[in-house]
Design a protein around this nucleic acid. Structure first.
Lengths: 344, 344
DNA sequence: CAATAATATGAAAACGTTTTCATAAATACC
DNA sequence: GGTATTTATGAAAACGTTTTCATATTATTG
């Protein structure tokens, strides 16, 4: 029953006492203040190590109003693209001594709002967000911004938010080169399985698709353009509808790889020859696309570069302390690249 | 240039002033203390909402010594199993009002040690850890435990840590049923591509493998048992070695799905008929295994159940406040299940 | 109706840092 | 050698809560 009297953490006062110095000096020595004698500093560092001292982040954060913690809101960490971005961000931030609180919205707007609140309450030094598909109104981030907390959006971003940084892939170009590739490999009747137009992502990819089609004087069949959540079943259903008609597509551009996989599986089941009679191109270069037979042509989004840019931007914003409101932050676009495989 | 004087966050004092009450009462009302009049409580809640008040976690944490934040260390969030576990944990903890700080060790022991330090410094209320493959000595978690911070290990766990909770899949049984399945489908010459024996995971799976072989009176060929990091290239290399001999395996059990995929790809390239002349079984039920042709038989680990158990255990530990040292915490084992597909 | 208990609030201390202000010691300058 | 500057330290306030202690009000009891 003996209560295991928790071994008290040593504080700055313990070091002070041990060295007959004031807590102020200890604090200064520990945080590299210039006005502290070399010898004193060494003594403090040694004693700190000896006592196993670790700065209490709560206290430090409360006083200095800096948590050295960054919040991240993401729809789902299991999405390949996000997992890669997050890993890069985390490794990058770690170098600068920042922590990352990762939160998943599960693509629920309510959750996203709540998480923004929680992270505000946690007084994160900055916030990184990839919003849900349903986020049209971004005002739940305003409180952070008003508070001077830098916000960086990536992937799914607001259209005209002047105060936040915006980093996104070149979705227009992605849509354009994907469609052009289908056309150049001989497709005439091209379908587009896209996400909801509420998100800038799918707007841009759709524009890219449209422009490529127009440029090559190909008609866009309205019945072959889908805007829906990009799930496996939705894509299957879209395929079913298209392939019950007399005229069927000979090329399909899907806005994610899950849909491309669904399309390919459908084709296999129906005995449609891919890429002979039907070409398929996906989006994101999910690992599954290179493993399936035939492997799927897709668009690479370079998640590491996105992650690196986010960290870079973030550090700039944190250094300037949110004081560069006049020089409006310019959106950053990361290039995309076609990965040609066996479905085209 | 106009400094955008950061809109100050409202504090408990602002509410107190607005309502002519003391900060103490506000605090009590906000945290549901029993001795506060219904009307007062409502007033406070209303005013808090009106002022957009959000509790400052730093201050609250400093005073009450509770951060309502849980730390998580994991080798890599992009690993399917972990991504699923994390998602479940996060959703679970959210219900109890807890936050999650997710950290990746990148399977580096040094990183893991450093993260443990950082999370200790962040004064997390508890820690969840899936250790690296190279973690044999777990003493870097001792400081947390001594400090009374509950620690829950899962997946890759210490062998005999009495003070921490341990949740793991039934790896022995996983190895056993995988091997037995190969035997029952006719394999006589079975290879095992396993991870390093430094991890309990692979020890247990290996024991399962051994026992199944013994029970069916099948010899274990030493040259067909590999203990190495479970990467794609390592698995390929193992395959190459085995298939340059005169006698080759007719069944392969790999301790993860990446290796199973590598094995399958090797077989395809060499024109080996799977499952006709070679049967393959992986481990973890990674989404890729169901997509590849032929789809790979594997062992399901039920990450959601692992996640749920972790949350449950954690809440118990937090409630008891680490005061149940006498009743040693029992390890929890999550069952596994064979998912039979086309490679067997 | 007095005495006790339960309910409701406030004052002030406490949590462990950082930072401002003050001051002492050391160094530089004329 | 005295003044000005720089360097080094300490005392004490501050950050925004929570909590202990004290006290006032209300409800309950014999």
């Amino acid at each position: 029953m003996a209560n295991p009297k928790k071994a008290q953490q040593n504080t700055i006062l313990d070091i002070a006492e041990a060295l007959k110095l004031s807590p102020a000096t200890i604090s200064r020595a520990l945080s590299g203040h210039p006005y502290v004698k070399e010898k004193t500093k060494n003594d403090v560092l040694k004693m700190a190590a000896q006592l196993g001292y670790r700065r209490n982040k709560m206290a430090s954060g409360l006083r200095s109003n800096k948590t050295h913690t960054i919040g991240l809101i993401v729809p789902r960490i299991s999405m390949f693209f996000h997992a890669e971005v997050i890993t890069t961000i985390q490794n990058g931030l770690h170098k600068y001594g920042y922590n990352l609180i990762i939160c998943q919205s599960n693509d629920s707007l309510d959750m996203e709002k709540e998480l923004a609140e929680i992270l505000l309450s946690s007084r994160v030094d900055a916030l990184i967000a990839a919003c849900t598909l349903h986020t049209i109104d971004f005002s739940h981030f305003d409180k952070l911004l008003q508070n001077g907390t830098p916000v960086v959006f990536y992937d799914r971003v607001p259209l005209n938010e002047q105060n936040a940084a915006i980093i996104k892939g070149d979705d227009f170009r992605g849509g354009y080169i994907a469609t052009t590739h289908l056309i150049e490999t001989g497709c005439k009747r091209i379908a587009h399985i896209s996400g909801p137009l509420t998100s800038n992502l799918y707007q841009d990819r759709s524009s890219g698709f449209q422009q490529a089609m127009e440029q090559h004087k190909l008609p866009v069949n309205k019945n072959w353009v889908f805007h829906q959540e990009l799930t496996h079943t939705n894509a299957r259903e879209a395929m079913r509808k298209m392939f019950e008609g007399a005229v069927t597509p000979d090329g399909i551009f899907t806005d994610n790889d899950t849909s491309a996989i669904a399309a390919l599986e459908f084709a296999r089941e129906k005995g449609i020859n891919v890429p002979g009679n039907l070409k398929i191109i996906g989006y994101s270069n999910d690992p599954r696309t290179s493993i399936i037979t035939p492997s799927i042509t897709t668009i690479e989004q370079f998640p590491e570069e996105v992650g690196e840019k986010i960290v870079e931007t973030l550090m700039d914003l944190l250094k300037s302390g949110g004081n560069n409101v006049d020089e409006r932050i310019q959106p950053i676009t990361i290039p995309v690249q076609l990965i040609r495989r066996m479905t085209t």
